[in-house]
Design a protein around this nucleic acid. Structure first.
Lengths: 338, 338
DNA sequence: ATGAAAGCGCTAACAT
DNA sequence: ATGTTAGCGCTTTCAT
């Protein structure tokens, strides 16, 4: 920058002001400086700027597993809005491990990111409180939400889950099991809650042998489902609470040489990629993951501009995609009324 | 840091050296400094350090579409190795647009990343040469490779593609079409080359009406395939060059109410996620995307440590997953000899 | 309208 | 073994 100043016969201050438009500069000198800038192929140094301004225009994003399409979509959404606002994005993967998540946050802080988006907080919140202290960095939660007042964006869960169970009940199913996954995860807990409410509203008793919980991996789901699906006592319909769970159920069906909806109906919360093209064609609730990412970034920008804004929780509506696996007639009304 | 120095009755230099272990410090003072560090909850400022050291310990990664599982996997691999080496990762998405890609690179440079990984360079290389000037930043290409000498890691393409076509030929197919996509993309060109070589070796003439090229999107593939698949003149087998292409073909099959392998056999280069669980069960060549990401990061680290190292090109072997869509008997020998 | 200079938080060369 | 200090590249206050 000193070189530029020299070449244009001005001070570094003027060069800086030309670059940033931070104070009026006489047309002629501005042109001279711009020419020098061009000639030298000048590129600003964001580090040095950040040192002075103490804002890096960088956000940190931590996701639990970038391999899963839904996270890819969230990342995509964040990236898009970040770019639009001139922000760079740092990414870390936590492998759904609270320890790694905290470490990622610390690293981000060392790099002085302006804010952090946690796309799927580990639900084991040890050390989490510390991150939330007001003196701490702006934070937005994505997907897995906390109960306290925070900036966060997720998808509606209870209502949609209730409605797809309603949908099954309305189409004559009365023995519906839920493959709920790990109920200590808030999101999954909420989905279970929707299931419970639907049964409740229809006066169907909740049977504990129709709730498959405490299964965390696709493999565990697959193993757990086999005994449940064999024999005549099996449920007539299944709702699954996440992509991995659905995959596990499909594995079990395969193992038993069973078909959906012929042998058991199936509705999945979350969609498997390219679901359109494959059999079974699974009726699904689809989360608007890209938009969720966009909203998260916008929420963060808002907070950066106005640190004292009220914390906001955004819940986006998922889409209902009616396919064949629920075994309902094609003309059956959408449970989402759309 | 000045506060720490005060509290421990030493100079900032000593504090710095305790933190970095850059010079011997008397046990007792070290302990005193460490205590002060702890008490103050000191966190180093990587920006300031980067200013001095002129290395940020940050790498920039640009992918064309984080939404696609294969990129998620590469990102995962890079993230893992980066973390292990104490590097942070910046991510940008280029939407397969050369312009955006260049902009992402520029932004990364402004942030002074130590190196850049380009996970799928846009093949329109305008302005690309500029990025490659020796005075420029260390660069590693991922997936789409360049012909010149550069650090880059990809998967083998020609050989594996040749072998899966061999596999089809060996099992009695002699009319095999390739859905090759956009042949100006080097990777896709290579896959086509493998197809060509296989036909050549078997003395099967290459027919231009058996090469579907110049299709870029899933939708275009779907539309282009319909006329080809109708009627008795249709090919007996299809090889597809990428995930999106495979998806397009599946769409066309669906439109025509056709099945694979019953109506036409299919082998896909690249695998659709959760392919295990769905019908049709597509015989596929699977790229080790996570490892590719890991290797890319390691190559970059090597270059950073030794700027004068010879450029290295790494080609990883894909896996062959034999399923039903190729219509070959289950016991047919693996074309990859494994 | 422009310039001089301090300083952001560190590291490292040079002293002692 | 430890301390002093210049300076990384910029922004911005205070002068002129």
């Amino acid at each position: 920058m000193a070189d530029i100043a020299n070449a244009a016969n001005v001070s570094v201050a003027t060069v800086s002001h030309v670059i940033n438009g931070t104070r009026p500069v006489k047309e002629s000198t501005r042109l001279r400086v711009e020419a020098a800038l061009d000639a030298a192929g000048y590129r600003r140094d964001r580090l040095a700027r950040a040192m002075r301004r103490s804002t890096t225009e960088t956000v940190g994003v931590v996701v639990s597993d970038p391999t899963q399409p839904v996270f890819g979509q969230m990342i995509q959404g964040v990236a898009k809005e970040a770019r639009a606002a001139g922000y760079a994005m740092m990414l870390a993967s936590s492998a759904d491990d609270g320890q790694q998540e905290l470490e990622a946050i610390k690293t981000f802080k060392e790099h002085r990111v302006d804010g952090i988006i946690l796309a799927e907080v580990s639900h084991d919140l040890a050390g989490f409180d510390e991150m939330l202290r007001p003196d701490s960095i702006p934070l937005v939660l994505l997907d897995r939400l906390a109960s306290r007042r925070l900036d966060q964006v997720g998808a509606e869960t209870v209502g949609p889950m209730k409605r797809i169970v309603d949908h099954l009940i309305g189409n004559g199913y009365d023995d519906i099991a839920i493959v709920a996954g790990d109920l200590s995860v808030p999101t999954l807990q909420e989905r279970f809650e929707g299931y419970r409410q639907a049964l409740d509203a229809a006066d169907i008793p909740l049977r504990s042998d129709r709730v498959v919980d405490d299964v965390r991996t696709e493999r565990e789901v697959r193993a757990a489902m086999r005994p449940i699906l064999q024999g005549n006592e099996r449920p007539r319909a299944l709702v699954t609470s996440s992509t991995n769970i659905t995959a596990g159920v499909l594995g079990a069906l395969h193992d038993l040489d069973m078909r959906t909806p012929r042998d058991v109906a199936l509705v999945s919360f979350d969609e498997l990629p390219y679901a359109e093209h494959f059999a079974p064609r699974i009726t699904s609730v689809v989360q608007p993951a890209v938009q969720m990412g966009e909203h998260a970034m916008r929420l963060l920008l808002r907070r950066l501009r106005n640190p004292d804004a009220q914390a906001r929780t955004i819940r986006l509506k998922p889409r209902f995609v009616h396919r064949q696996s629920c075994g309902c007639p094609a003309g059956a009304p959408s449970p989402f009324g759309d």
